[in-house]
């Protein structure tokens, strides 16, 4: 089989030929580097979908190299909206800065009674491996590089929903600017998450939390009343709730 990989130096696709056997894309990349082209650059770690290092785009869709079975004709590219450092290796620092901007951590601990149900409530959100697949799939970054983005908002939501957090308000304040209201609810993030996390739902939950805290519901502002069809194009039913 042959696959094509976008090389940064030539800014073009390079074709590589592989044996026709079942293997993960990561295994294929390692083989290429070891036997065909030592200059091919990519990042990888655990091989078991948990270290978050090896996300790339295959045929336009974000995947973990270690969890994608490579197929004839696959086009491999680096993640979107990340500065490309070399070939498939991208700079994750700007994206990771969203965690800082969202203050996605436990602000102030309070002791609480927790149950198995509480654990399950944000179990999925804490499965996040920071692979940046969702960030790459988020169209908002095309127009707003300061957007907090899916993984930071999911993480902010996870802490806001923690009964041990006594300062939920601090999180609520941070996620409003370039945050929950800028999201178009397109589901791009949810579709590509290798851990089955649903950032779109988390953002929706954060929106209601924000409103509960007495802040303006900017859903409507975002929908742009008076500009017909704008809402529906972004996954909204503009007549639905109204």
């Amino acid at each position: 089989m042959t696959i094509q990989i976008l090389r940064s130096q030539i800014n073009d696709y390079q074709t590589y030929t592989l044996a026709d056997e079942e293997m993960t894309l990561l295994k294929a990349l390692i083989k290429i580097k070891a036997t065909q082209d030592a200059t091919l650059t990519f990042t990888a770690g655990c091989r078991a979908s948990v270290c978050g290092t090896c996300a790339v785009r295959v045929n336009g869709r974000e995947v973990l190299s270690c969890a994608h079975k490579v197929r004839d004709g696959d086009m491999i590219e680096p993640l979107n909206y990340h500065p490309v450092l070399r070939d498939l290796k991208v700079d994750k620092q700007p994206a990771q800065k969203t965690l800082l901007n969202a203050t996605a951590w436990l602000h102030r601990y309070q002791e609480a009674v927790l149950t198995h149900k509480d654990e399950r409530f944000t179990e999925r959100q804490t499965d996040c491996i920071l692979c940046d697949a969702c960030y790459s799939a988020c169209p908002v970054f095309a127009v707003n590089p300061d957007f907090l983005g899916p993984f930071a908002l999911t993480r902010a939501y996870r802490y806001s929903a923690d009964k041990q957090e006594s300062e939920v308000k601090s999180i609520v304040e941070r996620v409003q600017h370039n945050g929950v209201w800028e999201c178009t609810l397109c589901s791009g993030c949810t579709l590509v998450c290798p851990k089955g996390i649903d950032p779109k739902m988390d953002i929706t939950m954060l929106r209601s939390l924000v409103v509960q805290h007495g802040y303006e519901d900017r859903t409507f502002a975002q929908m742009g009343f008076g500009t017909p069809d704008f809402g529906s194009e972004f996954g909204f039913d503009s007549n639905g709730e109204f």
């Binding site: 951590w105 436990l106 601990y109 198995h116």
Partner: peptide, 9 residues
């Protein structure tokens, strides 16, 4: 620190 440990009832 907020580690989401599994819980008992």
């Amino acid at each position: 620190l907020g580690v989401p440990f599994s819980r008992l009832d």
